[in-house]
Nucleic acid binder design. Structure first.
Lengths: 138, 138
DNA sequence: TTGAACTGTAACTATACTTGTTACAGTTAT
DNA sequence: ATAACTGTAACAAGTATAGTTACAGTTCAA
């Protein structure tokens, strides 16, 4: 159960909201499609809300809808909203008395930035509208 | 302390081995530079060994050295040797009674492959020799 | 041929992260 | 007022990594 599938789930949820247009969708309904608990969905929606991707309304007949049009939601935005944004982690405190240990951190940090950047560039090529179309024509 | 820093650690270790050339290096020494336990290093070296990147020798005066020259060790090889190779995970069983749930998995799977591929391409641009030079000129 | 010095690996603990769940306070339409 | 929502805290369960100890197996050297 521990696999960090938040990005995949976010794409799923946003696609669902996109199909409902202006109509607010209940977390319970979304949970039914994703096949998980409604609280898990609300937690995810909370992050997407902070990123300005969705808007929720509390109270009776409330729910959540997109805050932007599907073509204005880039997959990079989604990724940054729910992921840590690092493909690999740096390792803790190498020994500074060793020539390699002293300098490897900076080298790895640069590499990390470059790899993360390549992911960003690859994701930036798609919007939620593209995903919707792929789902429709599957 | 749970952060999957295996790739970073692997690069560190391989750089260290590269600097020793043909001379076998003891896990205890490597552990000193990485600042961790020798068994952690031996576990990592075991994976690198299975990938054909290093060669170990048991017994007295044993140790580990590179199985290839540094310029023949591509960072992609290292990544594949120690990482799962997936930038994000797919989420479990969406509801197949929902139009989105039914098709989202295939769409996400394609996206996953494309993103993972972009990481591979970005890593493929570097070899261990490049890392060594960066560490030297830091 | 004995002993010292290694690797390889199993087993266990500690830590931390994600998911799933219950519970409940706050908000809103009817 | 009440029913129907969201937001979030709190907790349990499952899983992954890191660190550690222990020990079997291998190799060299005296």
């Amino acid at each position: 159960m521990a696999a960090n599938s938040q990005f995949a789930m976010a794409i799923h949820v946003l696609t669902l909201l996109a199909r409902s247009g202006e109509e607010a969708v209940k977390s319970e309904y979304v949970a039914g499609s994703v096949n998980t608990n409604a609280v898990v969905i609300r937690r995810l929606l909370s992050q997407l809300n902070q990123a300005g991707l969705v808007a929720s309304q509390t109270g009776a007949f409330g729910g959540t809808r997109l805050a932007k049009t599907p073509d204005a939601i880039n997959l990079v935005d989604v990724y940054k909203a729910v992921c840590c944004g690092e493909v690999f982690a740096l390792h803790g405190s190498p020994n500074r008395d060793c020539p390699v240990g002293r300098n490897i951190e900076a080298v790895l940090c640069n590499l990390q930035k470059e790899i993360d950047s390549s992911v960003t560039v690859a994701l930036a090529r798609y919007t939620l509208a593209d995903v919707m179309e792929s789902v429709e024509h599957a």
